[in-house]
Design a protein around this nucleic acid. Structure first.
Lengths: 232, 232
DNA sequence: AGCGTGATTTTTGCATGCAATCTGGAGGTC
DNA sequence: GACCTCCAGATTGCATGCAAAAATCACGCT
């Protein structure tokens, strides 16, 4: 065993709206374990022993097991009957599939968000974009990452399809797992922001094909940057 | 309470490879409840009381609850904390989203299956297609439905992306729920088969754009037929 | 040393029991 | 009659306990 901290979300962890224990352990556990996986505190392939996790979160095995089943459906946990749970592996092959799938959805998002988003929604997205630029200038990588996720998720929401939004979120989560390990380099961040600028222009102009194309290109550029660092 | 049969999968139900109870109750329950939902035996919105389901499957509440959490992740069951589980609603609005999402994936499938499928895989798909035609001529709607699902799922597999394949299957399931209630009319079935013919031609010719276009069109025609019957 | 083989320990799967919450209705008040 | 309030019954949430399965280890064998 490693001599690491056994602490779970002691009190005020980073993510703001963490479900309260008292409101039900299921949501609390799902959010808590998901966070630990997304932040890389639990690495891909790591064993998720029930007794261990029960200790960290101070709950009994019943709600914990239910939470693991739920996370398995999100593709974050791998369940092997009679052999326990592990953090879902994230090899380059799967990551390539994840980026490719996300690309297909980005295409859809571009075609539809350009038509369906209201002016107010576009203004809201613009604010997110500006907050993202501010975070980069302030050199706050933690904020930058969270705002970047929020920006793309909001854009996905503007496409107006609940089903694809859920899938998009799942894929985004699995990418975030990889991204958290690789400290994006500054030059890629600046290039990314420039792409965001062009995305906002296409959206404001409500240019469907243009927006779709830019989103796909942005996804591919991100994929290339992430995969390059992964495949060391 | 209705005076209906309380029987669950007594012995030899229709679906061939049902997980064995002895191999673990989780898979058994997930497959069993999913089947009941997909076949319409449990209608949209129906309450899924734990005691009731425990009685039907002769299991205790612990594995049953775990199965419900898993099915919630598939979009088939709606879980409301402290208020129990219901079969996920399938209103026209959601169904429209499901078809639209599936359309986006069909586009991707067309672009990639045309390039990635091996000759042997195309031949295998051709066999499925011919079995489908045979089922239609034999007027075996049960077989037709199952083969049709298998055909499209196999085509999705040929696109070579595990992530989108899982999503595709989820969406297909939710459509099947609606389709099972509406007894496709024969003229639509024949039109559908004609579309399949053209799909096979495009795939054999490995014509990416053509295949994508035909798959999207097929999806939209199906959507129109299903939605027309739903919105009575 | 390498490799089965069997006992011990650990871990998972499932059932049960109690506490908390929700639901439905009777009775009271305005 | 409409609207609380409170009480039973039913249902869900969670913890615990036992049995089955895997993993670990010790031992003996070739």
């Amino acid at each position: 065993m490693s001599g690491e901290s056994q602490m779970a979300p002691s009190s005020a962890s980073s993510s703001a709206l963490r479900p309260d224990r008292a409101r039900g352990l299921h949501d609390y556990l799902v959010a808590g374990i998901r966070d630990m996986i997304l932040k890389g505190e639990l690495e891909a392939g790591a064993r998720l022993g029930e007794a261990d996790l029960c200790g960290r979160f101070e709950v009994s095995r019943t709600p914990l097991r239910e939470a693991l089943k739920a996370l398995s459906g999100e593709g974050l946990v791998l369940l092997q009957p009679n052999r326990g749970a592990t953090v879902a592996p994230l090899d380059p092959v799967r990551l390539r599939d994840v980026f490719e799938a996300k690309g297909a959805i980005e295409h859809f998002i571009g075609l539809n968000a350009a038509v369906r988003a209201s002016d107010a929604e576009i203004a809201g997205l613009q604010e997110l974009h500006e907050a993202l630029v501010a975070a980069e200038e302030a050199e706050a990588p933690q904020d930058y990452t969270e705002l970047n996720e929020a920006y793309h998720l909001e854009l996905a929401r503007l496409a107006g399809n609940e089903e694809l939004l859920k899938t998009y979120e799942r894929l985004q989560h699995n990418i975030l797992r990889a991204r958290h390990r690789i400290n994006d380099d500054p030059s890629r961040v600046r290039a990314s922001l420039a792409e965001h600028e062009r995305i906002m222009l296409a959206l404001t102009a409500r240019a469907r094909l243009d927006l779709a194309e830019r989103l796909v290109a942005h996804n591919e550029a991100t994929a290339a940057a992430v995969l390059a660092k992964i495949a060391v």
